[in-house]
Structures are given as C-alpha cells and as structure tokens.
Amino acid sequence: MTIKVGDKIPAATFKVKTSDGIKDMTSDELFNGKKVVLFAVPGAFTPTCSLNHLPGYLENYDAIIAKGVDTVAVVAVNDPFVMGAWALSTGGEGKIVYLSDGNATFTKAMGLDGDMSGGGMGTRSKRYSAIVDDGVVKALNIEEKPGQAVTSGAAALLTQL
C-alpha cells in the first residue's frame, strides 16, 4: 500500500557516504523532531534525475531552508558509493543528504517501488517528493511519468512549504 499524507514514515536504515566511510542513518535520526524535504529518484546519474530533478533542489536549497526546513534529503535505490559519487559530482555534498536504499527496503515500505527491469534497472523508486514533519507525511507528490520532474520538483514543493 502506498504511503499517504498523514501516515508516519516507515522505520528504515539508510547508508550514507561520509568522510569517515559508509555510515548507517536511521529514519528516526533523519525525521524525528525535524521538518524534512525528501525527494526520491529512480537512479543517481540518470538523465532526468541529474539534469532536472536534483538541480532544482540545489538551486532552491536556501529558499527551502528559509521556510523552516531542517534537512533536504534525496533517496535512491543505489549503493552508498554511487550516492557518494553523485553528491560529489553535483556539488550537493554538505547540503543535501544522499540516502542509499540499496535493497529498496525503504522504497518498498513506502509503497513507492516500481519495476524498471524493462530498462535494465530492476526495482527502483518512483519519482516523488514529500514534506515530512516529525516523521509524519504532510505533503506527497508522486510523478505520473518517471521521465518528468514537475509535480515532485523543487519549485512545486516550495509552494507547499
């Protein structure tokens, strides 16, 4: 079942690449007592994700934080080394938290997984954005077409804050 506005974020443990190596970050650490903008992409380094979706969050980062957001995070069904490399290559390291959901555990628990095996990508996340306040979903924007980042883009989300 797909998560919806008013639901609590499921418990999960992500992997994040830090200067000290790969570390675990739990959903409680990320969301409890914080206002978080979370967006999900089908894959790091993929065209729409790298050229459209993520850049909008980087460009609007200061405006999002100015609206009282504590953390901006991106999640993808990629390993933490790929997510770390993506953070470095996009200039987002130190701003956006790049969450690895390598086994799609969190993505499946959210009910936002999709079969992209036709394109050779296997199970991936649907493209979405969410505003999460103290672990509770306050807004959820799921893209109808994975090659677009309009509904889940930073500009649209900024109007919801």
Rank of each mutant, 00 (worst) to 15 (best):
S27Y: 10
K145S: 07
G119N: 13
V69W: 02
V72S: 02
Q148S: 11
K108T: 06
A12T: 01
V97S: 13
D24T: 06
E144T: 15
V150Y: 12
T151D: 10
S125I: 04
V41C: 11
N103T: 12
D62K: 14
G111R: 00
V97P: 01
P80G: 00
Q148T: 08
T13D: 12
V72I: 15
V82M: 07
A130I: 08
N141V: 02
H53S: 06
G135N: 10
A154E: 02
G135F: 11
S117E: 12
V37N: 08
V5H: 07
A154C: 06
K34T: 01
V16C: 05
K95T: 03
V74K: 09
E29L: 12
Y61G: 02
V82E: 02
T13C: 08
L161A: 04
D115A: 07
A40G: 10
T2F: 00
D62T: 05
E143H: 12
L112N: 06
Y98M: 11
A109M: 02
A156V: 15
G94T: 00
G122A: 14
V136P: 07
T18L: 11
K126T: 08
I3F: 05
P42D: 05
S50E: 06
K17C: 03
A73K: 01
K15Q: 15
T123V: 14
A12L: 09
S19A: 14
K145L: 09
Y128M: 09
N60M: 03
E59D: 14
D24L: 10
G21R: 08
D20V: 00
G102I: 05
V37D: 09
F45G: 05
V74A: 11
G118N: 12
K108D: 05
R127Y: 06
N78D: 07
D7P: 06
P80T: 00
S27M: 09
V41S: 08
G102H: 01
L158E: 03
L88K: 15
V82G: 00
D24Q: 13
V41Y: 03
C49M: 10
M121I: 02
T2V: 08
F39W: 01
I96A: 09
L88P: 00
V137C: 11
I131S: 03
G118C: 05
L38F: 12
V75K: 01
A73H: 00
F31I: 03
L112A: 04
Y98G: 01
K67D: 02
A156G: 03
T13A: 11
Y61F: 15
Q148G: 00
L54K: 07
L99S: 00
G102F: 13
K95L: 06
H53E: 09
Y57M: 04
I96N: 11
T18C: 08
F14W: 03
A155R: 12
N60A: 12
G135E: 09
I131R: 00
V16H: 04
T18Y: 13
D79K: 03
F14H: 03
Q160N: 13
S27R: 10
A73I: 00
F45R: 11
T107M: 10
E59P: 00
F106T: 06
S125C: 11
E93F: 06
G68C: 10
E93A: 15
V75R: 01
L30M: 10
L99A: 01
L51A: 14
K126W: 04
K108H: 00
D24E: 15
E93D: 14
N141W: 09
L58Y: 02
T123G: 05
L30G: 07
V77W: 02
T151C: 04
G92W: 03
V41A: 10
T123E: 09
D115M: 10
